[in-house]
Design a binder for these strands. Structure first.
Length: 273
DNA sequence: CAGATGCCCTGGGCGC
DNA sequence: TGCGCCCAGGGCATCT
């Protein structure tokens, strides 16, 4: 569930807190989290003594630019958290990497399921070369989205979730966007009318913007937290995701759940066509 | 080549 | 209260 809105919320807070700060200490204990580096010590060597020059984001990846030109790439996977704490803060279970920014500030990368990862690479990261345009920053018109959709003869939802097509949208926001656009998950991407493409374009930007405004979605099992450990607020605004059996906010018919691609899809069978 | 499946992994929720 | 089981799913490898 950390998708674009959650990652963007984290990016903005880290941007305020870390730009200009120097990494004065680094501890990497979770080998799986730094698996792109042969040894954890390699990761530590690559970050120690560098300053943070910028905080960027591409899709669901956080990009911390370092003063030597390298980039620290952070991906939260399913359960990753980036927490800002005081250096003396008590141990947090499933902490894999700790960075110290001096006597007042520390960062901890916590990730129970270890699907996330953290690595240092050169800018721009070749490891992220497969990512498509960013769903928030780089999709700028309905015409552009329409051209993208026509280039692929596949179903709408898997395409929205394909990070190589457009980066940042996962299962939750795909369902919310498709609900807002009144489109079914299994519509052929190249079958959309111009009006439908416009609805999808507007839904993408309005849902992502609104979710960022509410600091993301925190679900019971995912436990997304911002850098201060606080939960997001957007889950209270969900219209379709997780609302199986509850009335559609538009037409009152029951929201249904279907399994597709091994994943749950929530939709209104009446409103979404 | 689109799309399904399985794997990685742990915590929460549920049934008994 | 506790135990086993299933589910959540991002990204990737591997099939059909």
């Amino acid at each position: 569930v950390p998708e674009l809105p959650e990652v963007e919320t984290i990016r903005r807070d880290l941007d305020h807190a870390l730009v200009g700060r120097e990494i004065r200490s680094a501890v990497a204990t979770g080998q799986r989290s730094v698996r792109r580096h042969g040894e954890a010590a390699e990761f530590v060597t690559a970050v120690l003594g560098r300053s943070v020059t910028a905080m960027g984001r591409r899709g669901k990846y956080l990009l911390m630019s370092l003063s030597d030109g390298a980039v620290l790439v952070l991906h939260l996977g399913m359960s990753g958290q980036v927490l800002l704490v005081e250096p003396g803060h008590a141990a947090i279970a499933h902490t894999h990497v700790m960075l110290g920014f001096g006597p007042d500030l520390g960062l901890r990368f916590v990730d129970p399921r270890t699907f996330g990862e953290i690595f240092v690479t050169r800018a721009p990261p070749v490891e992220l070369a497969h990512l498509g345009v960013d769903a928030l920053d780089d999709v700028r018109s309905a015409a552009q989205l329409g051209a993208m959709l026509r280039s692929r003869g596949t179903k709408l939802k898997p395409l929205l979730m394909d990070q190589g097509f457009v980066a940042g949208i996962g299962n939750l926001y795909a369902d919310e966007i498709l609900f807002a656009a009144r489109l079914r998950y299994d519509r052929a991407a190249d079958s959309l009318s111009a009006a439908e493409v416009r609805r999808l374009y507007r839904a993408m930007s309005s849902i992502l913007d609104a979710a960022i405004g509410h600091r993301g979605s925190s679900l019971a099992d995912d436990q997304y937290r911002d850098v201060f450990g606080a939960v997001g607020d957007y889950q209270s605004r969900h219209q379709a995701y997780g609302r199986e059996g509850e009335p559609c906010p538009r037409c009152r018919k029951s929201i249904v759940r279907v399994k597709t691609g091994g994943r749950s899809t929530f939709l209104c069978p009446r409103c979404q066509a």
